[in-house]
């Protein structure tokens, strides 16, 4: 089957950033990388403070550009990178500041995923992106189900690299089903919406880099805190493959399901089956 035959969407025009945003974009990305490394390896509170400053800088930069416009109901594509990039500090702040200790471990994913999903939907609306623009559509279910099925072996591969214990609160058939649903929506959908749906779309062509490169880079960056080099390399390859698939088919539905299955395999199914 040729590439053209399975393409579901026409390509979007690459983004040409405003000159002032192009100048500071590497600084924002570097600051987010520093914050991620601080949270993971030095002091989580210091990293959170850096994330807070970066978040304020991003949204104020964006608001300042909006203050010059009298009719900006829709954000021009050239500035939409700012609210979308702000999702990364929001993700990290939510992951360390949410009071999770009183909850069963499986609900941690729902508690952290909720603010991220809310931010992602607001960023998409601000950027004037319709659901179809960020890959929330399906024109060929067989293709998307084939992509989703890849989540099963990927989950096994991830488990063999990391070998985590079973996530708490997912024992028993009913709870396991609920856990699967939480991981599918709050991890699979949320991460794919942010990285392949929004970042890959809005950053496409920014600083002359394809959106797939941006989404893979930033996706790998937020996993750098795992401290496991093999797992980080695995995540980079998976991110690149998911990005190419979304680029090819114009839909994140299959990779969101694959991502959900990968994580549920990693945290529930494979630890129960093999440990």
């Amino acid at each position: 089957m040729s590439v053209v035959a399975i393409r579901e969407s026409p390509e979007r025009e690459p983004v040409v950033l405003r000159a002032d945003i192009a100048r500071v974009l590497p600084l924002y990305v570097t600051a987010i990388a520093v914050a991620e490394l601080l949270v993971a390896f030095v002091d989580p509170l210091a990293g959170t403070l850096v994330d807070a400053v970066v978040l304020l800088a991003l949204v104020n930069h964006h608001a300042w550009l909006g203050s010059k416009s009298s009719t900006a109901a829709r954000v021009p594509a050239e500035t939409a990178v700012l609210p979308v990039l702000a999702l990364l500090p929001i993700l990290r702040i939510a992951s360390v500041a949410m009071p999770l200790s009183a909850l069963p471990e499986i609900l941690w994913y729902a508690a952290v995923g909720a603010p991220v999903l809310a931010g992602a939907s607001l960023a998409a609306r601000l950027a004037g992106l319709k659901p179809a623009d960020i890959g929330l559509r399906v024109r060929s279910w067989p293709l998307q189900i084939a992509a989703a099925a890849a989540g099963l072996p990927l989950g096994l591969a991830a488990y063999l690299i990391v070998r985590p214990g079973v996530v708490g609160g997912a024992s028993g058939a009913g709870r396991a089903l609920l856990a699967e649903a939480i991981l599918l929506v709050c991890v699979g959908l949320a991460e794919e919406l942010v990285f392949r749906g929004l970042i890959q779309t809005v950053f496409d062509g920014a600083l002359r880099c394809p959106g797939v490169v941006w989404s893979t880079l930033l996706f790998t960056l937020v996993y750098a805190g795992s401290g496991n080099a093999a797992y980080i390399a695995f995540i980079a390859v998976v991110g690149l493959a998911f990005g190419c698939w979304v680029r090819l088919t114009g839909s994140i539905v299959g990779v969101a399901m694959a991502h959900g299955l990968l994580v549920s395999g990693l945290l529930i199914a494979w630890p129960q089956a093999l440990s």
């Binding site: 702000a86 929001i90 603010p115 601000l126």
Partner: peptide, 22 residues
């Protein structure tokens, strides 16, 4: 409401959810 104020909602709504949980 202004376009600039609306653009800050990307931060304010998720932060509001976190603060409510705290």
């Amino acid at each position: 409401t202004t376009p600039a104020a609306r653009r800050l909602s990307v931060a304010s709504v998720p932060l509001l959810l976190i603060v409510t949980a705290v």
